[in-house]
Design a protein around this nucleic acid. Structure first.
Lengths: 223, 223
DNA sequence: CGTGCGTTGTCAGCGTTTTGTCAGGCACAA
DNA sequence: TTGTGCCTGACAAAACGCTGACAACGCACG
């Protein structure tokens, strides 16, 4: 899970990053508002933690602009000024939850889990691509109806690619989503994983885009 | 099965907890409304029993906020003021059933069973999977008609898995539903429990998905 | 008031699977 | 041809889940 943390107080930010990383998230930190907006607008996160009262751009403004451009990841708002007014404004601007400072780290983690669950909870149970079916309930992949015995990492990899079929996915992106803490960059785990998955699947599903990453053709777009 | 009990009258709460625990449920009790909402929002329960007329936050408000945030566990409303109006309001707010005080404990247990049954998609008090039958009323499991002598914890485990047949259930999820909130995470109790249950059942019912959890194949999905 | 039995969680040991690394080789593009 | 990126097989370490033994505990029964 990849989280965008927008917080200008460097002490709080450091503590939060530590706690979040310990909890298994991949965290990216931004202290500048304009920069934060750009990151949220262009990158893919599973959630954002947003401090109100930033320099250069107001937190609420960032949130509004994200929502205007249809960025849908859940946002948890954080602020020292825990007034009723702000709470309403935050929710109106499209926040998913609200946490006044000071807060307990456990509560933050719990609320973060809650908003992520809500946002991903209603995904469909199956993804079908050609003869390959991903059953998220059974956590199983079948080819022509026959179950394939993938290891956890292989399953995560194929699952991620299938969920993002029709789009090139970089090795870096895969690494970020498959591994919790940041992982040694110069390693060929992904290549190995792809190889093993391909062999087990026995079908041409994962295509290599030399120099860019991997792609699974989406059902409509043969590519 | 893990139940959230929201009740401020400590005498009633105590009696209820005793009865519920005797009936095999894991019960967590909250008397404060705000706190109760938070627990229901962040933890996973199989059902909640909710007293209306609490201090600090109205029971109906709690329920509404749960439903707004997509929390779907069944809720049984409990109130002394058994008016027609309140009943309607409760149902509108997303309650699954309604029980006026004073009530018979047996009736409460029956209604609780009913709403849990409905929520897990079962239509009777029995869950049958192959030769194994779960009788939720008698709290018994039979294999080919012969009763199996499971301990309380083993029963909870198998029962939970059977209620969620066809889905992979993680060890963490099992822990959360079989034990109350505060339980050491780093332990292999679940593995031990699974082992003991398997031995007593003597049938291949519980399948291990290494790295993910356990699954019982649902009647339709042969796997 | 003991006593014995069933239950429960912990633990250490074991076999198996998984996983990351590495080196060598291949393929593709310049 | 050359360089870069990707693939592959082998290997060792780590992770994972299963099991039997054991001690603590509660509880019913004598």
């Amino acid at each position: 899970m990849r989280i965008l943390l927008v917080e200008d107080d460097s002490r709080i930010a450091r503590d939060l990053m530590t706690a979040l990383e310990n909890a298994g998230y991949v965290v990216e930190h931004e202290s500048d508002g304009e920069e934060a907006w750009f990151m949220g607008d262009t990158e893919n996160y599973d959630a954002a933690i947003l401090d109100l009262g930033l320099p250069s751009m107001d937190g609420l403004a960032i949130l509004k602009r994200w929502r205007e451009t249809k960025r849908a990841f859940p946002v948890l708002i954080l602020t020292a000024r825990g007034t009723w007014r702000e709470r309403v404004e935050g929710i109106d601007a499209g926040a998913d939850d609200y946490l006044p400072k000071p807060f307990q780290m456990d509560e933050l983690l719990a609320r973060l889990r809650a908003i992520i669950r809500r946002s991903t909870g209603q995904s469909s149970d199956f993804v079908e691509i050609g003869p390959v079916t991903l059953d998220t309930k059974q956590m199983r992949i079948t080819v022509n109806g026959a179950p394939v015995n993938l290891s956890p990492q292989e399953y995560r990899l194929v699952s991620y690619l299938m969920h993002h079929a029709g789009r090139v996915v970089t090795q870096q992106e895969l690494t970020e989503h498959i591994y919790a803490q940041d992982f040694e960059r110069d390693s060929n785990v992904i290549e190995v994983l792809v190889g093993r998955s391909r062999k087990k699947l026995g079908v041409d599903l994962i295509e290599t885009r030399r120099g860019f990453g991997y792609i699974i053709a989406s059902p409509g777009n043969e590519a």
